[in-house]
Amino acid sequence: MARSPSEAALIQVDTDPTYKRVAKAIEEAIMSGRLKTGDTLPTETELAAQLGVNRSTVREGIRALENADLIERGGAKRLIVRVPQASKIAWVNTRALGLMHVSFLDLWELQLQVEPFAASVAAERIEPELLEALRENVARLAEHLDDDEKVTSNDIEFHRLVAQASSNAALSLVSEPIRVLLFSATIDLYETVPQARHRLLEAHRAILAEIEKGDSAEARRWMARHIEDFRRGYEVAGYDLLAPIPIDPRTQDHFG
């Protein structure tokens, strides 16, 4: 006798390998809050008993969660719940953006919205420690203005610090992959357009000054001007705004 559509819809078979089901069960406990950051997981033997599987299966599931950065091994090799590192999340998302053939223009359009907002909020909320970090960042840029790779890395760090100063975790997490992929897009820019280094330093100094003064509107204006100038430098270099950005191998050395 044929089943009705409603009856058929109720039948679900989990065909995932057992180790994936183990990983899912632990991940669900973490995401639901039953296991919290810093909590210690039971031993592999205890988990195997609780979940009704063998230790090798638990070990495979644990490895998957370690790769996802949800757990780490602490003292005595005990398993501890952790918050995934933003850099690892960013690198995964950066690779996804690269595979989607995202162009410089795609990223720049988003930057033009995100970065001025970050600067305006940072001017209102920045803590003393981050303000000092921004000052040190600008000082290092001035010291290494002839080192193109350091200039690019310094620029990435400057914008990361501004995002962190906004005290908006979502903003920091969303904008990080943009910065990482733009590292690939601009790593050779300053060799092609040397004057861009000095314009970068001028902009960073101006943005820092407005953040120091707590002037949200001027911080936003200067950041928008900086991002507009970034596009002009890219065009002066002769790069194609619409071409997909390939991920430079050096990018993973800095962010992978």
Results as ranks from 00 to 15, higher is better:
14 D>S: 05
189 L>R: 00
13 V>M: 10
216 S>K: 02
242 L>R: 14
228 E>N: 12
229 D>P: 03
54 N>M: 09
20 K>I: 06
71 I>Y: 01
102 V>Y: 04
139 A>N: 07
99 L>K: 13
243 A>E: 15
122 A>Q: 03
215 D>L: 03
39 D>W: 04
7 E>M: 12
35 L>H: 02
239 Y>L: 15
236 V>E: 14
136 E>L: 15
64 A>H: 10
253 D>N: 13
4 S>I: 06
226 H>W: 07
76 A>V: 03
238 G>T: 13
66 E>Y: 07
247 I>P: 00
55 R>W: 06
111 Q>E: 15
240 D>Q: 15
17 P>Y: 01
30 I>D: 06
212 E>W: 02
161 L>D: 01
57 T>R: 03
171 L>S: 09
105 L>D: 15
245 I>C: 05
14 D>C: 04
128 P>C: 09
142 A>Q: 03
176 E>Q: 15
178 I>S: 05
73 R>S: 02
194 P>N: 06
130 L>Q: 04
225 R>A: 11
157 E>D: 12
89 I>Q: 11
209 A>H: 09
225 R>G: 12
217 A>P: 03
173 L>M: 13
185 A>F: 03
174 V>P: 03
155 D>I: 11
16 D>Y: 10
141 L>E: 01
139 A>F: 04
57 T>V: 11
219 A>K: 01
228 E>P: 01
39 D>G: 06
204 H>C: 10
37 T>H: 12
220 R>I: 02
134 L>I: 13
231 R>Q: 14
128 P>K: 09
13 V>C: 09
78 R>T: 07
143 E>L: 09
182 L>P: 00
10 L>F: 05
204 H>D: 10
194 P>K: 05
143 E>C: 02
118 A>H: 02
218 E>G: 07
43 T>E: 10
209 A>R: 08
154 N>L: 15
187 I>S: 09
194 P>E: 04
110 L>G: 11
106 D>L: 10
153 S>N: 13
36 K>T: 14
193 V>F: 07
100 M>C: 14
69 D>N: 13
213 K>I: 03
97 L>H: 02
11 I>K: 10
168 N>H: 14
213 K>T: 05
